[in-house]
């Protein structure tokens, strides 16, 4: 069994190495003045200075984050309302919700982006510069995941709490607001986080629906790899490192919080059994 465990460790760490080697090597070189990997180089913070002082880069990052927040808020509202509506509907309507909701989930992003573009820009003639096609398109991508994240929480909820609220004189709308929403809050929050990350990661919907003068991180990076501006290329290494560190911190924080929760749960279980 002991031998088995060391094989397991070896495999797990080999895969982790595979996943992180490129990111870590790039992170290392982002702190140097090298213009490509493998060059002999000296320590330098120039890439980080470029990243934070070049207006074009700052605008692009700000735009991406604002877009992600707007899309996530809209997706969270729509997806949460949709999950509640679907949950309290008759089986036929529920099935219709689930099928429609599943389409953007299984569909290829390039098809989603292209079809939204055709409908809004070609058929309805909406100007891309209004940001409407971009926000609507990314919301199509994100809202279904909010729906999928909230829906199971409704099933886990004790339905009699809602009934009790009504018996105590709350109107149905108040009962939903004050009783149902707080109960499904964990699902809403994780749906919101998912929507933010999906919007940040999106390339295809953005490229088909964005205003010509606007860039998200994805579209900007793709254009930059085609271009020949070395200082921008290496500044993006710095951006990659910054994002990696942010995501790592969030993950470690989440993991610590969760293991703390698990520990208290174990302790509680023990207390109950003792």
């Amino acid at each position: 069994m002991k031998k088995n465990n060391s094989i397991a460790l070896a495999v797990v760490f080999a895969v982790l190495l595979l996943i992180y080697a490129p990111i870590l090597i790039l992170a290392f070189y982002s702190f140097t003045d090298a213009s490509s990997i493998g060059e002999s180089a000296h320590f330098s913070l120039q890439n980080y200075i470029t990243l934070f002082t070049t207006e074009e880069l700052a605008e692009m990052i700000k735009g991406t984050v604002l877009l992600a927040l707007a899309v996530a808020i809209l997706s969270t509202i729509l997806g949460t309302l949709g999950a509640m509506g679907a949950f309290y509907s008759k089986p036929g309507a529920l099935r219709a919700y689930r099928v429609m909701n599943q389409i953007p989930v299984v569909n290829a992003d390039v098809v989603t982006g292209f079809s939204i573009c055709i409908l809004l820009v070609v058929v309805f003639g909406i100007n891309k510069d209004t940001f409407f096609p971009l926000v609507a398109g990314q919301t199509v991508l994100c809202a279904p995941f909010v729906f999928l994240s909230v829906y199971p929480k409704l099933g886990q909820m004790d339905p009699s709490i809602y009934e009790a609220a009504l018996d105590l004189g709350a109107s149905p709308a108040t009962a939903v607001r004050k009783v149902v929403i707080p109960q499904i809050m964990p699902g809403i929050v994780s749906g919101f986080v998912m929507a933010v990350t999906l919007s940040l990661d999106d390339y295809f919907v953005a490229t088909y629906t964005k205003p010509a003068a606007f860039d998200t991180i994805s579209t900007y990076v793709v254009n930059a790899t085609r271009g020949s501006r070395t200082e921008i290329k290496t500044a993006l290494w710095a951006l990659s490192t910054v994002i990696f560190l942010i995501v790592l911190c969030i993950c470690l924080g989440m993991n610590r919080k969760r293991s703390a929760k698990e520990n208290t749960k174990v302790r509680k279980d023990r207390r109950v059994s003792a």
Partner: peptide, 16 residues
Amino acid sequence: PMWINFTLRITALKEI
């Protein structure tokens, strides 16, 4: 890695 923008990850891979 799912939460790190894929274009940045592919940039890293490309350099290597």
